[in-house]
Every structure is written in C-alpha cells, then in structure tokens.
Nucleic acid binder design. Structure first.
Length: 484
DNA sequence: GTAGGGTTAG
C-alpha cells in the first residue's frame, strides 16, 4: 500500500505548532480549516496546538473560539488560552480564564500555574499570586516546584513589590537555572538594589552558573538606575573579554542609559555614534531621556527630531521632545511638536494605574470618572493635596504641557492616575496598611514629590511600580533616592 | 505506537 504518508490526526499538532512558531498566519488558518473538515478539531492535542497558534498570532478571539467550540478540553488547552490572552496583552482575561477553568473542575498543574504567575507578575496582582503560592504549597505532593515554576513565583513576588518574598522563594528553590538567577538579579535591579544585584551576579558564578546576555541586561540595568557608571563600564567590557558574549543592541542601550542618566551625555552620544551595530530607536530613546533629565535642549532637539522620523507613531517620543523644549522655555517649539503630532494623527498613550484590593484589580485612568466611588476619590484627593500644600508642597504642573517622557496633562482637578489609585487605596484600607500601585508609564516629578510627602504626612508606606522600576515611599523619602 | 504545555529580557 502507498497510503502510509497520508496525514492523520497525529500530523496536525506539529503542523499547527510550526505555523504558530513561524508566524505564518495564512497557512495556519488553512491548516485549521483542514482539521475542522477532517473532524479532528475536537482532539485535545490538535485543539491545544491550534489555540496556542492563534495566541502566537495575536488572535485571541480565534483562539477562544477554538476553546469554546468543542468541549473536549484539558489543562493543556486552558493553558494555551491563558498564555494566549497574555500574549495578546489582555492579562485580565488571562486571569479570568483561569477562574473559568477551575469552575469547570479542571485542576491546574505546574504549567498552568506558571502561566498564571506570569500574568500576575505583569498585572501586579499580588493577592492572586499569593493564592497560587498557597495552592502550590497545599498540593506539594502532586505539584513539584521545579526551576521554571519557582522562577515564575519569585518573579511574581519581585514584580508585585515583595522583594523579601522573592528572595525567600529564590533561596528555598532546590532547582535553579540561569534564568532563575536572572529573574532574581533583575528583581533586585528593579528595586534599586544595584549592589546586591551585582553581588548576586558574582555569587551565581561561584555556584558554577554561567551568566548569559540576559544576565547582563539585568546588572547593567541595575547600574543605570543607581548611577554606578564605572561598574557598568567594567561589566560591559567584561562581556566580550571575560565571558565571550557579544554585546547586543540592548546592552549598548543599557550603557547609553547609564552614561546619560549620570549626566555624561557626551560619552553617551559618542557611544551611540561609535557602536559597531546599528542603534535602534530604544538606544536613541535612552539618550533623549537623558537630555530631558539634564536639560540639554541642543542634543535633545537633534535626537528628538531623528526619533520622530524613525518612529512617527510613538507618542512618547513627541512628549519627551516637547518636554525638553518646555524645560528650555521654547514655547513655539513645544506648540510645533504638538501640532506635528496632531497632523500625523498620533494618539497619546493614556496613563493608567492599578491597585488590587480584596482580590479585585481596580484600574484608574486620568480624567476618567467611571469608578463607582469616583466622587469620593476626588474629594479625598482634594483634601490630601490641601494638606500637602500646608506642608510646603507646590504642584508642579505649570511648566510642562506633557509630563515626563509621557503624555499626560494635568489641570487642577485632573489628577494623574497614580494619585487616583492612591486616594482609592486610602479610603479602602486600614490606617498604616501599605498601599501598592502599578503604573503603565513612568512616574512624573510632581507625583513623585507628592507621594513622598504623603508617605510622611499620613505615615503610610506606598509602593509604586512604574514602567521600569519600583519606588518605595516611606517617611518622606523614596528608595530610588530621586534618581530614576 | 506516533502529537499539544510553563520561566528570565525586549
């Protein structure tokens, strides 16, 4: 017989997976059609591979349709769906699906729990993450804490502001891999603990783990956010000389960031011009950010104009350039950048802050009044700001039309999203309880100084994660030492 | 008998 090579249901999971990995959408859809025609769509292996493929394509709705169409689904299918929503940027949906899965009495194993922890980490959903941790502990006979699950758990704690718990998990892990060390190093870096991050970098080598390119992104990042320029230069040089790792564009970006933040703008620019690989927009972005911090309008203008052509749709770049002009009181240029943005139809990226209370994630956007307690939140905030003003706080909103690196505009009653989230935290927690907020953009100068004061005046610890790092406010100071 | 799963960075 010559029919041996005819495709059967065993062929399709591999095929779907390959389409997903290769990002070939048209082919993938076609394979899916075949699968349906041949009646294989209900098979668990086929189904999970299809869901995963659509997730990789960024087509969450199609993935969901596959999940819902046939009812033969197991944990692998659900896991593909959770991961799919995560990839598509709908992290809240990922957690929702996890709940649906459990209501259908499918028991999560280590794979699902790992995906869920990644979603919690992203959202800053500490309570959800803690629940997973408790679940893993409860089921320790059936769920083995391997390096991947442990890493996801410690990463969740670090990204949710609990560096102490991240460390505890890390230390207790019997199985560690390079990525576990990387996650812990990055966690320390995010929290501004540069010395500890570098120390751990050496410790991993004493334990015979070889740093890789990602490890270096972690340590270089740590240096950038603590002003440890010499350390960063030394580490960067050692990449090739000692570790035989060729620096990639991201590593150059870290170094440019580090030099620039520390005010060594000439060296930063020199590095951008002399680096052996083509700088990407992120590298120029670091340089532009440094120009804002240090008020260098001359360099800022050159780099800003370049970036506006490289990335005409990135609203953050316009905001940053406009900010640099505003700082130099070049108001005509500020207006021109805004006009350019309007002409090109560039949409601003709205700031949003999340706070998790009672197992529920609340999201706030500036100027948005849809939260049921919005009235109370605004009046609380008004009272708080008045109190701060008595303590010497001066709202810093007069000068710039856009805020830091970003796009938010602030008027008397339009508070930045983190202020709204914090006010909501105040009316929803007991006195003395730590307030934890996660923001999608970077924190601005004004909010930063206001929150410092809030932490002192109201005796509250406030933990704020912005787009790149943590700020622990306590007793009038911030863990970033005002260097961010 | 053959096939489908999770982590760190960007």
């Amino acid at each position: 017989m010559m029919n041996d090579a005819k495709p059967n249901k065993f062929t399709y999971p591999t095929l779907l997976k390959a389409c997903g990995d290769g990002g070939i959408v048209a082919e993938g859809k076609q394979v899916h059609c075949h699968v349906v025609k041949l009646g294989f769509a209900g098979d668990g292996h086929v189904k999970s591979a299809g869901i995963r493929m659509y997730g990789y394509f960024g087509m969450a709705a199609d993935a969901r349709k596959m999940l819902d169409d046939e009812d033969d689904d197991d944990a692998v299918c659900w896991n593909a769906m959770i991961d799919g929503y995560f990839r598509c940027g709908d992290v809240g949906k990922a957690l929702e699906v996890f709940n649906t899965m459990q209501s259908e009495r499918i028991r999560p194993g280590k794979f699902v729990l790992t995906s869920v922890l990644a979603a919690c980490a992203h959202l800053g959903a500490l309570d959800h993450g803690r629940w997973v941790h408790a679940y893993v502990r409860r089921k320790k006979k059936s769920i083995v804490m391997d390096a991947v699950l442990g890493t996801a758990l410690l990463d969740m704690y670090a990204k949710c502001g609990r560096l102490d718990m991240a460390w505890e998990v890390f230390e207790s892990m019997k199985e560690k891999e390079v990525f576990s060390w990387n996650a812990m190093i990055k966690g320390l870096a995010m929290h501004g603990r540069a010395d500890d991050a570098v120390e751990l970098f050496f410790e991993m080598q004493r334990r015979k783990f070889r740093p890789n390119g990602i490890t270096f992104i972690g340590v270089l990042n740590a240096c950038a956010h603590s002003g440890a320029v010499e350390q960063a230069l030394k580490l960067f040089d050692s990449m090739e000389n000692v570790y035989n790792i060729e620096p990639e564009v991201e590593h150059y970006g870290c170094l440019v960031d580090c030099l620039g933040r520390s005010g060594r703008l000439e060296e930063a620019e020199e590095l951008v011009n002399s680096m052996p690989i083509e700088p990407n927009p992120a590298v120029y972005g670091s340089l532009l950010g440094a120009c804002r911090i240090h008020g260098n309008a001359e360099l800022g203008e050159r780099i800003g104009r370049l970036l506006l052509e490289l990335e005409p749709n990135n609203s953050g770049r316009y905001a940053l350039l406009s900010n640099i002009y505003a700082k130099a009181e070049r108001w005509d240029d500020v207006a021109e950048v805004r006009k350019l943005m309007k002409e090109r139809g560039v949409k601003t990226n709205p700031g949003s802050s999340m706070i998790e209370l009672g197992g529920c994630v609340h999201e706030f956007k500036m100027g948005e009044g849809c939260h049921p307690k919005m009235k109370e939140i605004y009046s609380t905030l008004k009272v708080m700001i008045e109190r701060l003003e008595m303590e010497g706080y001066v709202p810093n909103t007069s000068q710039v039309l856009f805020n830091i690196e970003e796009e938010e505009k602030e008027t008397a009653l339009q508070y930045h999203s983190e202020k709204l989230a914090i006010a909501f935290g105040f009316i929803s927690t007991k006195p003395g309880e730590t307030i934890r907020v996660v923001k999608n953009l970077r924190v601005c100068d004004d909010c930063h100084s206001a929150i410092k004061l809030i932490s002192r005046v109201y005796g509250r610890e406030i933990v704020l994660r912005d787009r790149v790092r943590y700020h622990h406010f306590r007793d009038g100071t911030c863990s970033c030492k005002d260097f961010w």
